[in-house]
Structure formats: structure tokens, C-alpha cells
Simulated scan of single mutants.
Amino acid sequence: MRSSRARALEATINRLLAGGPKFFVKDHRAVSASGDPLRYPARTQRLDYEAEVAVVIGKGGRDIKSDDFTSHVWGYTLFNDWSVRDNVSFGPDFAYSKNFDTSATIGPWIVVNEGIDPQDIPIECRVNGELRQSGNTHSMVHSFAALGEHLSRDTTLWPGDLIASGTPKGTAVDSSRQETDGSFPDTLFVKPGDVVEVSSTLIGTIRNEVVKPTG
């Protein structure tokens, strides 16, 4: 008999597959770089990391076909999709949980003209040196090409736009076991003082310390 966790995971995957790619938009004002302090939001007790790879658009376009998408890609970079996990669903508040100052860490640079297969990029995440995530873009639910085709329908993608991969298993939220009362412990979620590193052997490493804001 399969566990409830396995059934929940299968239901999540089926929901993500149904009806094409699901996405949200990160505010460009939320961007931070490797080495920048990550501002711990006052509204959360459960701040999570998400190690991702992002393609950087080099040639703009609209209604791009998936088999032509790579010609629009300039390069590849790393992306930490910091997320607030307190009482969040896939409803109207989802984008709110993804956007706050410093919540989109990218870098450490953009890798171009290296013959990289976008669907074979390894990615890892460490918290205080402990390996939390280890994956590869070949496991994406929807490929970068499929995402590019979907996102460019009736909407122009511009040079400098980023499309992120989504994250492998190992985030704090999917690694936390639900308590009998329905709550989730906050043990694995990051706190001020923690150092989070997202890395790929093909791209590099981004590193940020979580800090409590002073104002």
C-alpha cells in the first residue's frame, strides 16, 4: 500500500501536468546577487529555498515554437526562488509568497556559448554545508522549450527575461513531516544566520546569508 505522502506527490505531479505549464512572475525589483544578504521577511516563520536553473533570453520573440526556442536563449544562470511557506496555497496569494525584497537570487554569472544541453544541467542546494537538494534539469515536468512556447503565446519575451526550471525535491516544505495535528514543524526552514548555497558544476555557485532586517 502506498503512503499518503506518495499519493500526495502523485496528485501534485498530475496537477502540474494537466492543462500545460503552471507559472508565476517574480518582480524584477526582488532580484539579489550572490553575496547579498537575504532579507528574512517579517511575515514568515517558514522561509524556504528553491535551487533552480534559469535560461536567459537573448533574442526576443512572440509565439515561439518549442523546436526554435534554443535560438532565443543567450545563456544559463542559477536562481534561488526564495519562498514564504506560511499558509500558502496555489490560490491568489501564491505570487505574494514568492515576492519580497531579495527573493530572487541569480548568478553568479551567465554562461554562454558553452554547448550546454539545457535539459542536462545538475543543480544542488546546501544549507550551512548540509546537502538538501540534488537534481538535474532532465527531471523537469515541462522542458525549457515547452515553457518558452507556452509563455510566449501572445506575449513577447524580451532580451534579459529569465525562465526558471522549477526545483527538485528536498525543499524544507517537501522534506517536513506533517504532525498529527496537521501542522508542519519549522525545523528545516531557514532562519537568520543560515547560509544557503545553490550550485551547479556547469555554472558556479550563489551563496547568501539570511539576515534579520534592521529596518
Rank of each mutant, 00 (worst) to 15 (best):
V88M: 00
F79A: 06
P118H: 05
D101Q: 08
N128V: 10
P108Y: 11
G115Y: 12
I106F: 14
N136Y: 08
S134A: 14
G75F: 12
D86V: 00
N113S: 10
Y96T: 02
D81Y: 04
H72V: 10
N136V: 10
I110Q: 01
G107H: 07
I116K: 03
V141E: 06
N80A: 10
D81R: 00
T70L: 15
G75P: 08
S66R: 15
S134W: 09
R62M: 14
S103P: 10
V141S: 02
T77D: 04
S103M: 06
P118R: 02
S83C: 12
G115C: 11
G75D: 09
D117H: 05
L78W: 11
F79G: 07
N87G: 00
G91P: 07
I123A: 01
E124T: 15
W74S: 14
V84M: 00
S103A: 15
Y76S: 03
F100V: 04
V112S: 12
T105D: 09
N99P: 06
K98Q: 06
P108N: 05
D120L: 09
D67F: 11
Y76C: 03
T70H: 08
N113G: 05
T77M: 03
F79Q: 04
D117L: 08
Y76F: 15
P122T: 05
W82D: 03
P92A: 04
G135M: 04
Y96S: 01
P108H: 06
T77V: 08
Y76G: 04
F100W: 15
N113T: 07
I121M: 01
D63W: 12
F69K: 01
T105M: 15
D86N: 01
D101W: 07
F100A: 05
R126F: 15
D63R: 02
Y96C: 01
W74R: 11
N99C: 02
L78S: 04
H138K: 14
A95F: 05
Q133L: 09
V88P: 00
W82N: 01
P108I: 06
D101F: 10
Y76I: 13
D93Y: 00
H138R: 14
S103H: 08
I110C: 06
W109C: 13
R132K: 15
E124Y: 11
D93L: 00
T77W: 03
V111P: 07
I110P: 02
E124Q: 13
K98S: 10
H138E: 09
A95N: 10
G115Q: 08
